[in-house]
Design a protein around this nucleic acid. Sequence first.
DNA 1: TTGTACGCGTTATCAA
DNA 2: TTGATAACGCGTACAA
Lengths: 321, 321
Amino acid sequence: MTNIREIARLAGVSTATVSRVINDHPYVNEEKRQKVLEIIRRLDYVPNSSATSLKKGMTRIVGVVSGAYTTSSTPFIQAFNIIAQQHGFHVMLFLTDNDCGKELVALEMLRSKQLDALVCLHRANEWPIIESYTKYGPIVTWQRLVNDLIPSVFMDQYQGYMLGLEHLHARGYRRIMNVYSSKGLNTPQRMRAYDDFSKKYWLDDSGFADLHGKVSITDGERIARSWVEQTDKPDAIACSNDDVAAGLLTELKRAGVSVPGEVAILGFDNNNLARLLDLTTVHYPSDKQAENAFAILLDRLGQEAPALHTLEFELIERSST
Amino acid sequence: MTNIREIARLAGVSTATVSRVINDHPYVNEEKRQKVLEIIRRLDYVPNSSATSLKKGMTRIVGVVSGAYTTSSTPFIQAFNIIAQQHGFHVMLFLTDNDCGKELVALEMLRSKQLDALVCLHRANEWPIIESYTKYGPIVTWQRLVNDLIPSVFMDQYQGYMLGLEHLHARGYRRIMNVYSSKGLNTPQRMRAYDDFSKKYWLDDSGFADLHGKVSITDGERIARSWVEQTDKPDAIACSNDDVAAGLLTELKRAGVSVPGEVAILGFDNNNLARLLDLTTVHYPSDKQAENAFAILLDRLGQEAPALHTLEFELIERSST
DNA sequence: TTGTACGCGTTATCAA
DNA sequence: TTGATAACGCGTACAA
């Protein structure tokens, strides 16, 4: 193992001088600098990063905790990875499968200083537990509003959902069924939006039982099959996300149902699937949220951070409504 | 910062004893062990992992280099991440966007011992350059056969493609168009398969110009539009992957073309999209390849490694053929 | 402009 | 069974 002392010895200087050369510090005689650089090249030397981390007290590694790869988490992870790399940070990925123990592994690595910071897309442990780890390094979350201890790049989905509902109304749909997911704060916000929406337009309670806990393509397919058998049918379905909408759309088409002729479908997120299937949807700027998450972490680490994006939902009109 | 010396002082023992307790070494008096454990708990102490890495000479971090998140790379990355975590390793993800410089960052981290090993899903730099890094740690690749220096979990796609072609033939299709991707060894292998296939069944050269360099959904959509305008049409299209097949299928349906009535579509990979759209495809076991990749790395690191899976293609018959 | 020497926090050898 | 101490490799006061 060739180390800094070896280089110093061969170059006929001290380790301090070698270190100065490596880190581009001033006050090094040009000749000696060249000599050192030559030895470094000749011995194929590179500083050991564990030693540097130990000395500097940071690793420049940020952990990303996610339950799994989903069509919604992937764009976030990708964007986060890219911006982190641009700032000389690296990303360690933790797929927890929503298991408390696996999530704890990531938190413990923050504690043991293998990680400088953490971003939690989802969480398995209770908030107080996660909060208790903020004393070891900054933690940012996605999609959840917490408190001062844990900042968030959360967006209130009231506004986004309302955008979609207003669009459905403008297109003439009046018998709207809501398909919600189950987790966290998003659903209450969306329900509130629908509540205000139906009051605003004097829509009497349509009588469709809203669905809950639907998040996957197969969920959407099941909803399609029950729609076909329903006697009193909604004329539009607002989905919890694009996956549900995609499953719904494709299964309806398989059954020969015309979309949007017989029923309109509204997605949420604007992921690849929505683009492929030409689904009308609400764009959820997860890439910008990821960049904000990183900026917040950088700031809390005391480094120069880029400015935050303002986050906005956007209606993407396509052919499913 | 509370460190091992602090613990030793408060427990009235030496750092050696504390270290023994932490690492479950034998020969430590039970009373002292309890005392040490109590102090550790009280001070919320945890060993600094940079120091441990420095001392041990390894970080238990494995790098994963991928051009981007694609529908084919994501399952691999996910499976690799999970198996690595099961073995107490962690994964650092590098999205290179096929940029040599960004890829070099990962290789350099192997050199500087921040990474114990590397798996390359794609590569931007020339092979000799990548090979030159194997002296710093094991490197495994996906989808490319290289040499002893760089083992691979590559699968010869001749067999898989032939599986698909035989299926098309059995279903009665005779006028097959091939849509190839461009990169690497896969295309030549598939072309060889088609060559043998057409000889076996005395298919005269169909006269369809095979397409090359098609890999995305939008590529598939473009192919659909040109199929519609073509006068001499193939009755089946074998695609480079499921994304192309998906774009092709959806755009054809939009144009009112019946699939498989007017034309059959064969995908490759068996990803989520293929399941959603009910595409006939060839299953490519990327999760098993990922687990093999990790096993090979583990073995090269001199650790006990799980047995390798045997890798097999499988035809998934669905409604597009 | 340069070098000495110490500290970062841990593990492990060796002698007791 | 225990402790003193030497690494691991780097960065940087401080003194020169």
